[in-house]
Amino acid sequence: MNSLKVLSIILIAFTIFAGITVPMAPQPQSIFEFPDIPGLGETARIIFFHVPAAWVSVLGFLISLYFGFKYLRTKEYNYDIKSVSAAGLGMLFCVLAMVTGSLWAKFAWGSFWNWDPRETSIFILLLIYGAYFALRSALGSDEIRARLSAVYAILAGLTAPFFIFIMPRVIGGLHPGAEGDSSGSIPIAQLKMPLNMYIVFFTGLVGFTLLFIWLLNVRIRAVSVEHQLLIKDQ
């Protein structure tokens, strides 16, 4: 776990340093220059931070689904603790992805929010997280809360792909990967970048993922302690 923490700090520090300091040039000569994409300019650097945050918010949801499913199979309360911790962190990163994305959209597309399909889908992801926590707070007993919120998360997880993969193909939009974009509908398929940008980008992706695992570990332990204290009080 310690090596994971150190690695995560190093990778994210590298991403922040390289992502912000490497200069942009119209015709990059060496590996220490990023190409200057017409129309985007310096704002293109957001990709090193925005995409990993969005990735982690989806990852958090998938992990929450996985543990929710495990809970339904085994009825062990530990899995529900893991599930709700992953969902809480996923929601945090979802807000980060929305904020960074909408800041970028202000400069690239002209307004903070355009309701393009990808923006709509991250908004729906946030609503799913919100609904998940609203449902949890409205259910009294631990067992029912864990069971029903796991079922709801799986239901929402099954309908979400309609948003992420299918609808952007049918109804057009501005975001890379929308209808008419030849590179495909999957968010990752938009990445036609030179090698040095790839390196910084994937370093950021791995760094954010490791950071998420670290935070998740802390969060799971905190929620378990909270739960044990609650049992002691009763």
């Binding site: 729906i124 609503l127 799913i128 919100g130 609904a131 609203a134 449902l135 409205a138 259910l139 009294g140 029912i144 029903l148 709801y152 239901l155 929402a156 309908t159 309609f162 948003f163 299918i166 609808m167």
Partner: peptide, 21 residues
């Protein structure tokens, strides 16, 4: 939601993300 409190408010909140597509 049948077992939850504040059922009617919660119903819309839960249904919208699922029905949105």
């Amino acid at each position: 939601i049948a077992k939850a409190q504040a059922k009617s408010t919660l119903y819309t909140v839960l249904a919208f993300p699922v029905l949105a597509p």
